[in-house]
């Protein structure tokens, strides 16, 4: 294991010029070869934390070190790649797919940003790896939601950063692309990258994350998936923001079995089946007890 953690966030507090404190006293360490979910409601400070890691905002207190360097140094040495949310991108911008991926190489080029043969090769590789080679001459606005996402993943690959920040990568993406993105993240993890993935898509977090960081202005919990992504911690992270459905007793069993099923969901009401294959019964219907957040 390397000595210094790749991301070391130490007592970070960020206050905006208008006096609003977005996050306070957040600390956690992340090491290479990890996929970490950054989970919290809207306004919990996920994007502020991203901004702090990329030097957009300067912490009022505390500090962030990336692979033992301060943020500015780390960015200069191309340590961090950023995959933006789809809403943040101007899809009408006159750039082709290959132009966007080439932007990932800019940090490796000289001042005039003239690509070398190696830069071109890395772009080809990155495009091939996300399966977008045949779309390289398309203007980015002409792509589907999943393809758009893959272009920016390819840019992160071409940049060869050891830390990859992904902002809500599954929003507006079909199930097939979601699986492909998760697969790619696992490969990158095995190659020693650290991915920090902000998401409010709770259901998929256990599928691909090794660690989670739960925040809501303050750090609620951070650590390995198994011990951290618990019902109790989630209830604290989401408060009254989630539908919290518990199925037990008569809704589930015909006997006195004390076991229960808990379903937590952020917007839609879930449909939950339970029982033997042929005669499943719908259990999350009217009979289920439903509460908002309370344990």
């Amino acid at each position: 294991m390397s000595a210094a953690p790749l991301i070391a966030v130490n007592n970070v507090t960020v206050t905006y010029p208008n006096g609003h404190t977005a996050i306070s006293d957040i600390s956690f360490d992340l090491r290479a070869g990890t996929i970490c979910g950054l989970v919290g409601v809207n306004g919990s400070g996920k994007s502020t934390l991203f901004k702090a890691i990329m030097g957009f905002v300067r912490p009022a207190r505390g500090g962030i070190r990336l692979d033992g360097m301060d943020v500015r140094q780390a960015l200069k040495s191309n340590l961090v790649a950023y995959v933006p949310q789809s809403e943040e991108v101007d899809w009408n911008f006159p750039v082709l797919v290959e132009d966007v991926v080439m932007m990932g190489r800019y940090g490796h080029m000289n001042m005039l940003r003239i690509p070398s043969a190696e830069d071109r090769r890395k772009v080809d590789e990155a495009l091939a790896r996300v399966g977008m080679s045949e779309y390289r001459k398309r203007q980015i606005g002409e792509l589907s939601g999943g393809q758009k996402k893959r272009v920016f993943l390819a840019r992160a690959l071409a940049q060869e950063g050891k830390i990859i920040l992904l902002d809500e990568p599954f929003t507006g993406v079909d199930v097939k692309t979601e699986a492909a993105i998760i697969d790619l993240m696992r490969q990158l993890r095995d190659e020693g990258c650290l991915m920090l993935v902000s998401t409010h898509n709770l259901g998929s977090v256990p599928d691909f994350c090794d660690e989670v960081v739960l925040i809501n202005r303050i750090l609620l919990a951070a650590g390995p998936m198994q011990t951290t992504f618990t019902e109790g911690n989630l209830a604290r992270a989401f408060g009254g923001m989630l539908r919290h459905i518990r199925l037990e007793g008569g809704a589930l069993h015909d006997d006195a079995d004390p076991r229960r099923v808990t379903v937590i969901t952020d917007d839609e009401r879930p449909l939950v089946f339970y029982g033997q294959s042929e005669e499943q019964k719908i259990v999350a219907g009217n009979g289920a007890k439903e509460g908002r957040g309370e344990k």
Partner: peptide
Amino acid sequence: FFDEGHARSIG
């Protein structure tokens, strides 16, 4: 102009 976040990430 295209992507400020990326511009920062490459220093």
